[in-house]
Design a binder for these strands. Sequence first.
DNA 1: GATGAATGAGTTTTCATTCAT
DNA 2: AATGAATGAAAACTCATTCAT
Lengths: 200, 200, 200, 200
Amino acid sequence: MMNEGKQKILEAARATIIEHGIQGTTLRGIAKKAGFSTGAIYHYYNSKEAILYDVMDEGLGEIRRIATVSIEDKKEAREIIQEIFDGMQDRLKKDAESRLQFYLAHEAMLGNVELQNKFKEKYEDWINRVEAIFVRAYGVERGPSTRAVAAWTMAAIDGMVLQTLLNVQVVESEHTNRILEYLLQDGFTHFFKIIGNEQR
Amino acid sequence: MMNEGKQKILEAARATIIEHGIQGTTLRGIAKKAGFSTGAIYHYYNSKEAILYDVMDEGLGEIRRIATVSIEDKKEAREIIQEIFDGMQDRLKKDAESRLQFYLAHEAMLGNVELQNKFKEKYEDWINRVEAIFVRAYGVERGPSTRAVAAWTMAAIDGMVLQTLLNVQVVESEHTNRILEYLLQDGFTHFFKIIGNEQR
Amino acid sequence: MMNEGKQKILEAARATIIEHGIQGTTLRGIAKKAGFSTGAIYHYYNSKEAILYDVMDEGLGEIRRIATVSIEDKKEAREIIQEIFDGMQDRLKKDAESRLQFYLAHEAMLGNVELQNKFKEKYEDWINRVEAIFVRAYGVERGPSTRAVAAWTMAAIDGMVLQTLLNVQVVESEHTNRILEYLLQDGFTHFFKIIGNEQR
Amino acid sequence: MMNEGKQKILEAARATIIEHGIQGTTLRGIAKKAGFSTGAIYHYYNSKEAILYDVMDEGLGEIRRIATVSIEDKKEAREIIQEIFDGMQDRLKKDAESRLQFYLAHEAMLGNVELQNKFKEKYEDWINRVEAIFVRAYGVERGPSTRAVAAWTMAAIDGMVLQTLLNVQVVESEHTNRILEYLLQDGFTHFFKIIGNEQR
DNA sequence: GATGAATGAGTTTTCATTCAT
DNA sequence: AATGAATGAAAACTCATTCAT
């Protein structure tokens, strides 16, 4: 079926991009990895660009799936925090996907508006989830400040992923993890207390 | 002089990269923007790669200059913190340079080991500065934890810059700035207290 | 039946050629327009060339049908001339068919000998008819000169059709039609008189 | 110089088109015939289409030059007519150029508006010349009718060229030439007399 | 018979690099 | 030093034709 071939091509394209970067990704390479002839690719996609677009699309979809912590869960604060931590840990490990993300970010910066919108969507979704968790876990009221804290949290994770991908091992992950744990358990509690007071 | 031509070429290359991305950067384009003929470029550089290498080199050097807060300064904690904040604000605004940074990061991820080392150097430098400031400003003892906090701080800034470059305006900068200010003034104070206790 | 499918394909091919030219005509395009799958085409024709050949064959066949004035008709000169005039008018209007003709002519010029022979046949047929009509209508004797006049007449019609297809509207058709009418009624009469005298 | 290369390419393109038709013309072929590498072509032209466009442009320009009979000439009627006749003869012989013309006509029919305009221009120019000559040679007054006769004259020439290019040798050129001569000497004289009378 | 996915040779196009002037 | 025309290998893309289902 059409979709099966598309899937193969997308998978091959994703793998090639991660391996060689977008510049190093040629149709020939994708075709070879997908087990197709060059021409066959054009049954599924009209241009290289179209393939890359779909890779981006799926790549960002993937991210959404990574956000495993559901807003609807009825769990204890402690438990939720553990899940966030695990989710973050998880993301720090998924090299390949993260790398793809940064490639896409790169592309988006080049002025690909559609991709920028996808990123906006994704960030909004993710920040919403984080905010909702904060609200329930720390008993704080939703407001611009909780949203901003959520945005900073996302930012910190992204930045740490970047450091990891860059092989910048300035600090042992053991320590960065402990800081994260402290933050989630006590840091935010105190933090939201301060913010809560200041807001009034 | 040799260096004058090199500088022109580098400037043109940087501008072209920011405008069209690394893929979209051709020698011809650089030559045109620099006001040289295609052939003339080869008097200054032996290959396109050599130019890109220097762009990266200078690009990352630039970052170091952005870190205006010197370790040796003998200022009040309050003042130092304000400087950090301003420095961060500043970086959030320098679109072009930041963009170049992310392109380079992209390239480094592709396995460019030399570039990775440059990034490592840069991060170590910067994290050192931030850590030193924390030590002085919050009166905490230097240790793996302060280093980890510094790394997370850097990560958060990087992540926020990324969101800015992606045009993801999920939260008004007014609010993210306030959170940053709170963090620097009260958050870290409390934070280092907890960590200090836990560390024992 | 085989022929039904062939007819559909031929019709689709003709339409596609008129729309996109011979270069722009792809098997896929023909198949789609004919409502067949790409592969199905090969049940009717062994190659694209075979299809084009049949299009040419039918295309030129069509022209023969356009020559409605039969040699055997026993009509008055006046009446015959009117018929010629109407036939020419007709041809000037049949854009699509004429266009196809010129495409085929184009192809024939490229050295397609078979097609050249078809054209020769067609012209011979047509010139014969026109000559026969001249003989009867103007009472002139058949000879190299009458044949040459017939050839020129055909040429003039072809050339005027070309001007029409090229959207060259240098002269209003009202005037070109009047000239044609004069020619048929008086011009040729006088003309053949002169030629008749000179021939002796 | 730039133009020298362009000229070589154009010449090679024209020759290739005449030899193989527009479809059979590949960049590789042009490059080879012009004595360039494939890549070199792109110094002069940004696309194959651009080359073809210039070929067309020059091709139609050529035609204008073929129209050697100048409107301003102060010659005897007899002499002028001879010139027309020679010019026509000439055109009937210039196989290559005429062939190119028909290729261009073909292209124009496909909807190339720019090319259509060029053709219009060319026909207007030519018909103007022929009309002017008629006016002087036959002492007839300029009007829609003389213009229409000029258009028909052009059409007849075009059509006869077409027959020649198609290798349709239905009539020996000896006879067609004689008819043309008669036409120019007596035919038109009588013809314009009739038309002149009718017009009143 | 019919389908449409697959082939692969051929086409246009790009671009870092070279080199005669 | 400087020019920019030229190179050629490699890229994206097209399409008539084949073939397993």
